[in-house]
Computed example of a mutant assay.
Amino acid sequence: MLKFAVKRILFMIPSIIIITLVTFVIMSFSAGSPGSVALGITASPEDIAAYNHEVGYDRPVLVRYGEYMLNILHGDFGERYSDGVSVTQVLMPKFPTTLKLALLAVFFAALIGIPLGVLAAVKKGTIADTGTTVISLVLASIPGFWLGLLLMLLFSYQLGWLPTFGLGSWKNYVMPVATLAIPSSAYVARMVRMTMLEALSSDYVRTARAKGAGPARIVFIHVLRNAMLPVITQLGMSFAGLLGGAVIAEQIFGLPGFGSAILEAINKKETMVVLGATVFLSLLYMLIMLAMDLINALLNPKIRDNMG
């Protein structure tokens, strides 16, 4: 497993290079120059050109990219054009909010989705199965922004139970977490049902039944463990995606999270902030996927043997 982990970490290097290079080139040609962002629209073209020359922005793109990557190796992700604040100081204070939001959303998605998927698989062809499938399809098709606004209308404006925006207490997380967890739980339920049905029709289940194992033991001891392997991977992918994709919930409920900081940087054409966020999220996503692979290997000896 150690050899496998080292290989995966080495594979991250070219992936990071490709991702950052593409982002760097796109932002260089689409975003505003450092001079126009730092000096504002009232600055003269001469002043903007002088500022860009001072920071080296007039050099070739690949030269600036190479310098940027070297700076990253020293922990320097650059500075925000508008005020000179380091990218780390801009982004990192926002990350705990998004991390908490993503963890809670994935936890409740699993808490809701796994039991529903197990119930649908065990009760295949019954009303419980049909009802669970229909509910999952409906929940999965609800747009996140619409669900968030609906929850706000019901629990804030109609009932007055929950605050509409900001951070003050645990109540501020209820609706954002629900906005993210409810659609995710539908995907989890469908995946659990599919993997459970596949496992229930396998040879080892028939053998367990022939030996007199009860239904509960078959489902929770033999089947669920194997059926959870792809579900764990899906939950890991969902968690990694929410770290950068929770921007809808953050915007609706006024949470100062990582996604909101990225969106603000894009609107203000702060290239260094966008690049820093891209590098951080890409690396974090790859590390999470590596962790999911290692967890699957621990749960499944066959995967562990294939790792060499």
Rank of each mutant, 00 (worst) to 15 (best):
S15H: 05
G212S: 05
L39N: 00
L111T: 06
V231I: 07
F4C: 11
W146I: 15
I16S: 02
V118R: 05
Q234I: 15
W170Q: 04
I26W: 01
S36V: 09
A43F: 01
L200G: 00
P176D: 14
L2Y: 03
H222K: 00
I218T: 07
K3C: 14
F4T: 15
L283W: 13
S44M: 05
S28V: 01
E67Q: 01
L91D: 08
F239M: 10
T132W: 06
V174C: 12
E54W: 10
Y51D: 02
G131W: 07
V138C: 09
L10M: 12
R80I: 05
A140S: 14
M272W: 04
D203S: 09
Y57K: 04
Y65P: 00
L62M: 04
P183W: 12
M272E: 12
A121Q: 01
R206G: 09
K124F: 13
G212P: 00
S33C: 04
G245H: 12
F220R: 05
K302Y: 11
W170R: 05
N172P: 07
E264F: 14
E250C: 08
A249N: 12
I16C: 06
L147D: 08
V205S: 03
S185I: 03
Q234M: 15
N306T: 15
Y204K: 01
G259T: 09
S201M: 00
I232H: 03
F77Q: 01
T98Y: 12
P215A: 07
A261C: 00
T233D: 10
I218G: 08
